[in-house]
Design a binder for these strands. Structure first.
Lengths: 236, 236
DNA sequence: GATGTTTATGGTCAGAGTGACCATAAAGGA
DNA sequence: TCCTTTATGGTCACTCTGACCATAAACATC
């Protein structure tokens, strides 16, 4: 979409918040804009919705272009339709939330299959947030292109609000691979931004998901590092 | 918007679910389409979003045209972007939820200021719903124009899910006018579709909202009909 | 190999919240 | 006056949750 946007019509785009938990911290993937407007600014990956695609297919195509992990978890977040949110013209943006396991991103990072960069997310007391890049670069919401700061704040708030009464947290872990409750707790702690009591956490999760059969303990046990080996579970 | 839609571009519309509680039942307001497509079908009121308006202003203008109650509660619901949802062309619809107190609608009804008709909402076990008009006309979701049945189902599900951990239920009652806990309970029962224990309900509401000061008991008491007069409360 | 560290797991206890009841208060109607 | 109706208040058992304490099973260090 290099050409100018026409001023006499209205466009629909999707913008995508891709989230992961890496090293016990919540991270958001940002691209860097190459073109005006906001050239050089960090931004959420986005694309225009074509006549031949739904919002969902547009998002699926977008993620396959910028971070091709198979079957990421997707959820529509909110639609932003302020008149002046894009200086090129009138663009209505349907924002989506994507959740990917860090483990799956890692291979893509190494082989250079993505230009996205992870930023550590630190929410502020007032509902805002700031973002820290791997090189230490620190951004606040207003440093993002367009209204992407506001979109990101909305997404983080949504995620935080949903994690303890939906199964959304499980999507940070690799599907079809067993995980320990400790790993799941790390996800929850990263999302909520506070430490949790492991004993209470385990009781909460097992009461909620094991009795209903959604979560099953596997035969295997953890093999690696320090500490007592954890039992491994499988979800769904 | 009588002219044809162009096939080479994309349009954005808002569709509005206006809900009220009347006689202890949840009602949804529907219009009847006068033109093709779906001429004669019941539908959610909607309008196209112009270049000079946000989605919010489009919704505000829409409701002032079809059901002019002052300051209705509005909340964005979901954006529907299926390719074939409108046979005229590609129309992306941002659905909104509006909540109005029945008392405020009544005057408009009497003076013929609205062509909308209230339909009693009855959700089914499977997440669908059917709608009953004042004349006994019964509709299922698939009897509505476009994908409005699906939109309505989404809205009802959202409302039910939110009523007991947000203050959304209060918006069914007249702002700036005191109400009894019995009236509030009627709202909750209508939304949830089941009777509640009045003693437990009162404890729930007072614990939740009175201690934080959002809900205050007024000096007044109910005057009317049978039974012990209720204390009147004011919210916010 | 004994000891300490680390992580996983299990249990207790008090307080909050909730559903199912029962009881009483205050009005109008028969 | 008695009955019905609605509002209000309280009890009791059960669940959920946060704050702890204790034990288990691995590795690390000396």
């Amino acid at each position: 979409m290099r050409e100018e946007l026409r001023r006499d019509r209205l466009y629909v785009a999707v913008d995508l918040m891709i989230l992961t938990v890496r090293d016990g911290r919540l991270h958001l993937f940002l691209s860097r804009r190459g073109e005006e407007p906001f050239a050089g600014y960090p931004a959420l990956p986005g694309r225009f919705v074509g006549l031949d695609e739904t919002a969902e297919t547009a998002v699926a195509r977008l993620i396959s272009e910028v971070l091709p992990v198979p079957e990421p978890f997707l959820e529509q977040l909110y639609t932003f339709a302020d008149i002046d949110r894009d200086p090129r013209g009138r663009v209505v943006s349907i924002a989506y939330l994507a959740i990917v396991p860090w483990q799956k991103v890692r291979a893509l990072q190494a082989s250079g299959q993505t230009a996205l960069r992870p930023f550590r997310v630190t929410p502020t007391e007032e509902g805002g947030l700031y973002l820290t890049g791997e090189d230490g670069e620190t951004l606040s919401g207003s440093d993002l292109a367009f209204d992407h700061g506001r979109i990101a704040e909305t997404g983080i708030r949504r995620l935080r609000g949903k994690i303890d009464y939906t199964e959304i947290g499980f999507h940070f872990l690799t599907d079809r691979t067993a995980f320990s409750l400790g790993e799941l707790q790390t996800v929850f702690e990263a999302v909520l931004g506070m430490p949790l009591d492991s004993s209470n956490f385990r009781r909460f999760i097992l009461n909620r998901y094991e009795k209903s059969g959604r979560l099953r303990q596997t035969e295997q046990a953890e093999k690696k590092g320090r500490g007592r080996p954890a039992a491994l579970y499988r979800f769904d």
